[in-house]
Design a protein around this nucleic acid. Structure first.
Lengths: 146, 146
DNA sequence: TTTGAAACCTTAAACGC
DNA sequence: GCGTTTAAGGTTTCAAA
């Protein structure tokens, strides 16, 4: 991770579909040198993979829900069971163990053909160790994944 | 957007770096047919672009902060000024206009060499129209971007 | 580690089905 | 619509510096 790698990271963060040729031109290396650095970062785990950004239409116009979760206690076993259950929920897009009052902050994508009520009843209320849930609905995404 | 396109979306959601050849094999089309569909989805805006997933190390180990924002009022002009300012903040990774009590839910990435206190003082408190800020720190990401 | 070139693979258009 | 072919260009590897 030298200065050149950081330069490549900065460029690739903005556009993930750059060719080795263009990347090389932008950082001042040959195509193969630039490409080899990218492959090295992949091998080291600095680059975890590549993703396609889909429009909400392509994904069935899901709406976004944020749920603050308080568990019954903070015992390691309670956390582990809750996290394992979370990971199995396909509606869960992102989840964080939090500091402060709330234990978990969970982001869900709810398909257009599904209801918030059903997800609350069948997905969230079923999670093990939950004491309190506080849900907030996103009306509109203002900024997305810089 | 027929059944085949949905199949392609499902596969590409998991791995964004698939070639037309491999994609074709997985959905049961020729390489060129699969590739044509992907290009068509790009042209229609269903595919918005491609991103690289970096490890936190590659990005300087940023920590994640969630901030609930209440504005002084909900006038259109207040919202627009606040949103425009948000979009200029490079620390802001994601932001949603919310329903209910809180007006905005903002996710920030704070570089390891930066402090929460500085971001709160120089980035958040400076935003126009802010009445109240409630910050929560992520200790650990449990699920990320299914 | 870099470069430059060769071999290989992918992409994108043309054609017929 | 799909598949095959084909030319252009991108990727990957390798020898040499």
């Amino acid at each position: 991770m030298d200065r050149m790698d950081q330069k490549i990271v900065a460029i690739l963060r903005r556009d993930g579909a750059l060719t080795g040729v263009e990347l090389g031109e932008r950082v001042g290396l040959s195509a193969s040198a630039a490409h080899r650095r990218v492959k090295a970062m992949e091998a080291e785990g600095l680059i975890r993979g590549y993703r396609v950004r889909f429009s909400p239409q392509a994904l069935g116009m899901p709406s976004t829900l944020f749920v603050s979760v308080t568990l019954t206690d903070q015992r390691q076993e309670t956390l582990e069971r809750f996290e394992a259950a979370l990971k199995r929920c396909e509606q869960v897009v992102e989840a964080h163990l939090m500091g402060g009052e709330i234990d978990y902050n969970v982001k869900l994508a709810i398909p257009a053909d599904d209801s918030y009520e059903r997800v609350h009843r069948d997905v969230l209320a079923v999670l093990p160790g939950v004491e309190r849930l506080r849900s907030q609905i996103s009306i509109r995404a203002v900024v997305e994944q810089a």
